[in-house]
């Protein structure tokens, strides 16, 4: 075997191993979610679905609190996108366009916030939101989700604006635009696909986030918080259906925006 073939074999082998490692749980969840309630405890699990039924999914969707929590999750995610892009896009633009003092430090610190464990923050956060009268309020969850999503939004939008040549905006300025007008008419339209990707990614972060949502709410639960709260008591089918329900948007959206994630990590 030539070294090149060996190289390829190793790369593809590792990739397949990793993919299988990640995909098997998804597969089992998906198959179980579409298995009738009675068959769900079959062991060993059949590799291929033996009986297809939407009973389990239907049971999940009709369970108490699921529909309101889905609505809550959507509201929180949309608010997070609105806050996150409003705050993050200007920061990303600044990173892409201006060479200000402390630019590199800013980039590192933005990422470093991701290393801070939210568990340590949970009690102070809960206390603060209690004092502000925001406890058990979707706004509080959206604010925390915004904080969690901002580093990604800033870095992704920064990458997006770097790809839009500065000379285009300057050309617009010589052609009669103000600085702001040049941004609106030239940079923004060209950045829109990338901004949409950032928005979708933000949606996924918020949609899947469970810890802050659980700590900060009691009755107005988001979907992951609801599923987590009932984890000890709910039937197995409910868990599988809930798992699939929560994973699907993330899988679909990550698939759609993977091009921009590649940008984020520096390769094209």
């Amino acid at each position: 075997m030539s070294p090149r073939v060996l190289d390829r074999a190793l790369i593809y082998g590792s990739a397949i191993l990793l993919a299988v490692w990640v995909l098997i749980p998804f597969y089992i969840i998906a198959v179980s979610a579409f298995t009738p309630q009675a068959r769900i405890f079959d062991f060993p699990k059949p590799l291929l679905p033996t009986a297809f039924s939407t009973d389990t999914m239907q049971f999940f969707v009709e369970a108490r609190g699921v529909v309101p929590s889905v609505i809550n999750s959507l509201l929180v995610a949309l608010a997070t996108i609105a806050f996150g892009l409003t705050l993050g896009t200007p920061a990303g633009y600044a990173l892409a366009r201006f060479h200000f003092r402390g630019r590199e430090a800013f980039q590192v610190i933005v990422l470093a916030t991701k290393m801070f464990p939210i568990a340590i923050l949970s009690i102070p956060l809960a206390v603060t939101f209690l004092q502000l009268g925001l406890y058990d309020n979707l706004l509080a969850v959206a604010l925390v989700h915004t904080a969690m999503a901002l580093p990604f939004i800033i870095l992704v939008t920064g990458g997006v604006f770097v790809a839009v040549s500065h000379e285009l905006e300057e050309a617009a300025q010589t052609l009669g635009c103000t600085r702001w007008g040049a941004f609106l008419r030239v940079a923004l339209p060209l950045a829109l696909p990338g901004l949409a990707a950032a928005a979708i990614f933000t949606f996924v972060i918020s949609w899947n986030e469970v810890f802050a949502a659980t700590i900060l709410t009691l009755r107005t639960r988001t979907l992951p918080a609801l599923v987590l709260a009932g984890l000890g008591t709910s039937p197995l089918g409910f868990k599988f259906a809930g798992g699939l329900f929560m994973a699907m948007p993330a899988i679909v959206f990550i698939f759609l925006i993977r091009r921009y994630l590649m940008n984020l990590w520096g390769s094209r």
Binding site: E167, E170, A171, T174, G176, C177, R179, L190
Partner: peptide, 20 residues
Amino acid sequence: LAPRDRNIAMVFQSYAVFPH
């Protein structure tokens, strides 16, 4: 004055033609 108020027109090295 800002570029738009100077009554100039400019051709850039990269052309800066708007792709959209």
